[in-house]
């Protein structure tokens, strides 16, 4: 079992590495990391699955992309991506509405996803499958966050709005406010991070003790938006453009 698992993971790692050109991460690092991640995800199981934010994607079923299926004015045979266009209707045109399938980024993303390719595969006309897959994407796990900044009360808001009334708009105030929290240190942008101390302990290897595990879970803030597919190429600012 373990050997199978290792084989699987290493296969994944190599695929991943070549697809996204991770040149600076050593494969063995990734290997361990992936093991850790998978272990964690499995342990966390489904308790995080019922994301409070699921309604977003649910609500999409009735609109935009899939709308054509329930609206009688629109031909029922609209395919979900280009693969189906020829087979069904060589000239798929919808009056004055924008449709998802006009962008095949959609299918690109599905097909290039390195995990569970089959699960993400979208077949023409498979509206139900589509929705199912988009749901399952969000149920994987949740990941750590940085400190939470203060929430000062905007103009005309007061303490009843769960915001901070006694607030000074200074760097020192925010720094002190955040330093009282037990959160992940942002080593890229903080001069001093508590080096190692409570951190290295949690990376003992592939297996994690139960106590450590609880500790890690506690550290995951309960932010439902953090669930779901992690984007391999994400949109966060960086400082590394060489100019």
């Amino acid at each position: 079992m373990m050997i199978h698992c290792i084989l699987l993971v290493s296969a994944l790692v190599s695929t991943q590495a070549s697809m996204y050109s991770i040149t600076d991460l050593k494969p063995d690092h990734l290997f361990v990391n992936n093991m850790l991640l998978r272990d964690l995800i499995e342990r966390m199981g489904n308790e995080l699955a019922e994301a409070a934010v699921d309604s977003y994607v649910d609500s999409q079923e009735s609109s935009s992309g899939v709308r054509g299926f329930s609206d009688k004015e629109i031909p029922l045979e609209i395919p979900l991506d280009y693969e189906g266009i020829d087979a069904i209707n060589p000239k798929t045109n919808i009056r004055d509405q924008e449709y998802l399938q006009h962008s095949s980024l959609w299918s690109h993303q599905q097909l290039n996803n390195y995990k569970n390719n089959n699960r993400y595969k979208v077949k023409p006309g498979a509206a139900v499958k589509l929705v199912a897959s988009s749901k399952s994407e969000k149920t994987e796990n949740q990941l750590p966050a940085y400190c939470t900044p203060p929430n000062p009360c905007p103009v005309e808001y007061n303490g009843e709005n769960n915001c901070l009334v006694n607030f000074k708009n200074t760097a020192a105030f925010s720094r002190d406010y955040q330093s009282a929290q037990d959160c992940m240190c942002d080593s890229e942008h903080m001069l001093n991070c508590p080096s190692g101390s409570d951190v290295d302990n949690n990376v003992p290897g592939v297996s994690i003790s139960s106590a450590d595990f609880d500790q890690i879970v506690e550290r995951f803030q309960d932010n439902p938006y953090f669930r779901g597919e992690k984007l391999p190429i994400a949109a966060k600012k960086g400082i590394n453009v060489g100019y």
Binding site: K138, Y146, P224, G228, K230, L231, A235, K236
Partner: peptide, 9 residues
């Protein structure tokens, strides 16, 4: 933008 990774959600 201010978390260690981005999600679709």
């Amino acid at each position: 933008l201010d978390q260690p990774y981005m999600t679709d959600l």
